[in-house]
Design a protein around this nucleic acid. Structure first.
Lengths: 343, 343
DNA sequence: CTGAAAGCGCTTACAG
DNA sequence: CTGAAAGCGCTTACAG
């Protein structure tokens, strides 16, 4: 690493500035700045000369300085519970790829669904003066006094605060409705739901679709069929074992994530029960592995990648078109039921 | 979102500065800066007053300005092929959590293993003046003239350039040796290897362990048993089908990632062949799902989370301890064979 | 077509 | 214990 640098007379950490180029070119910093920006009021000759020197010196603009001067950055902050969870990972990929195409960088923060961590990350993003924030909220209250464009992804606020925030979500009520109806049609009379955390709007929305489907089938709602918790294989595994202590198959289970479904399937397998005969399982998300499992997973497909893409496109619009900031963004992506082998 | 802000007289995008606090406190910006930093040369009274005002105004320091002044940022850049691949996702999680604990932010860039994208991301990071870079390299040549601390993760350079770069890797030669020996011990006479891309050092290292194990067992090396490609379920699936066109079971397969192994298992299942009787499969990485599959996957465990943690710890040392920068970092984490049901 | 000057928000010697 | 001043690297009116 040393060789090349030292031969150019630049040590590690030393950065070429406009001033260096100006000195080399025998011109002013002003001219260098404008030449590099390709502004029309600089002669072709000068531009060519300056660009050549910049190239030779390995000049890379200092965006910190530019940000300070222009009072804007090209950085987006992403707040999410856990970047290693496949659904969020795909969302982040959509964000990163779209942001890169629009010349934005992306700062990632994990909250583990802990409000105090979320607050901390938000503070860091604010200090970094990110141009906008894309958040999968844990505690909506943490976002009240942000001063930058913000869009909630996957979850929105609910209750009294409703409609104050921008959001791009998937239609979880409809997804749950699809899943539950499908389970019913497949002949299961009892449908369990292993839902997410009670504090998320998506969890709440799913209850709506679940109840609607039951109602339409004339099956009374029974709160003993409802479980809440985190989105993990382990939780799915444990919860299905809990259910098995209380109920005898056959029955159906709608899981609020494919991860939960995979854990649940594992529990079923260990009890030597059959899927879908004894227990039908519907997942949620359609992560890639759902179509590589031993028993292909029937699931409600939501494209988190698409949510990421839209999130960036909309937030960049809010950032770059001042009058757009007055608009309220409410996007709802429709889900699709993918029927495979687990039902 | 507007309510609170407007009542404070601050609109969206307007930021409180040291100057605002100074005006309010009837003091100089210098004093405010020092008070907020908790420097000893400011009276207790002044500190208390200034901190209260800062709090009330919702002051958040502008790290861009600080970075410019101090000529250093608290930002780390991560370059990786694909943040949605589970092994990398876990690595990134380890990086993010450790970095946050040390007050660093984390910029994530995906390369898709494409050198030109890698170059682009590196340029952006340089422009952002990241304090250090943690990279899973695709083309080592892209890193030659970086001027910031750099550590390669998971892969290192090889060939002529060897030993110029810092690296934290897993012992892939040993892992492949474990896997291959294990397959041999389990009675398979032919061992295929579905390896990664030819251009990665980890792929190369795996070949070493693979050949050593064969040699010890007195089995001649046959290049027809070696396949290269990307790390995906789809590739594992296709490759196993290719293998099945050429060879008849029983045989063993060592896959260079669990994702490949899962794809391969799917192909075996579709051909109605039995795991492990007909085909034994060993994965690599030990991603979480390996222990939730229908047939629990035997795999070589490498902790990418640990690599992430160590990566941050070491790079922060390089950044913050100038004399440490002279040291060369070469860390190799040892793998472990986890025997489950697929062998 | 080009340059001198101001200023973004911060920190830190330096002076008092 | 406190403040005036310089300067980090950049951009942009303003003047010529």
């Amino acid at each position: 690493m040393k060789g090349i640098l030292f031969s150019m007379g630049m040590g590690e950490g030393e950065q070429v500035t406009l001033h260096d180029i100006a000195r080399e070119a025998g011109t002013s910093v002003t001219t260098v700045s404008r030449a590099l920006q390709g502004k029309p009021d600089i002669s072709e000759n000068t531009k060519i000369k300056i660009k050549a020197i910049a190239e030779r010196l390995g000049y890379v603009p200092n965006v910190q300085a530019r940000a300070l001067r222009l009072n804007r950055t090209k950085v987006l902050g992403i707040i999410n519970p856990d970047n290693s969870s496949p659904y969020f990972a795909t969302l982040i990929k959509g964000i990163e790829e779209t942001a890169r195409g629009l010349n934005y960088s992306v700062l990632v923060g994990n909250t583990g669904n802990r409000p105090e961590v979320e607050r901390e990350v938000l503070l860091t993003f604010t200090a970094m003066r990110v141009a906008g924030i894309l958040g999968i909220p844990t505690d909506v209250g943490n976002y009240y006094d942000l001063k930058v464009p913000l869009i909630f992804l996957l979850r929105h606020e609910y209750g009294n605060e409703a409609r104050r925030f921008n959001s791009i979500i998937t239609n979880d009520a409809r997804g749950a409705y699809f899943a539950t109806s499908h389970l019913l049609i497949k002949g299961k009379k009892t449908i369990f739901i292993i839902n997410g955390s009670k504090y998320f709007s998506s969890t709440f929305d799913r209850m709506e679709g679940y109840r609607k489907a039951l109602e339409e089938a004339g099956i009374p709602y029974n709160e003993k069929c409802v479980y809440y918790g985190e989105s993990s294989m382990e939780h799915g595994y444990k919860t299905l074992n809990l259910i098995l202590n209380e109920a005898v198959p056959p029955f159906g289970v709608f899981c609020s994530s494919d991860l939960i479904a995979i854990g649940a399937m594992r529990a079923v397998k260990e009890k030597k029960l059959k899927i879908p005969e004894d227990i039908s399982i519907v997942g949620n998300d359609d992560i890639e592995i759902a179509s590589y499992l031993d028993i292909l997973l029937t699931t409600v497909k939501h494209s988190s990648y698409a949510v990421g893409v839209l999130g960036v496109e909309h937030i960049v619009k809010l950032i770059e078109q001042p009058n757009a900031a007055r608009q309220s963004i409410k996007v709802v992506l429709e889900p699709e039921l993918i029927i495979r082998q687990s039902t």
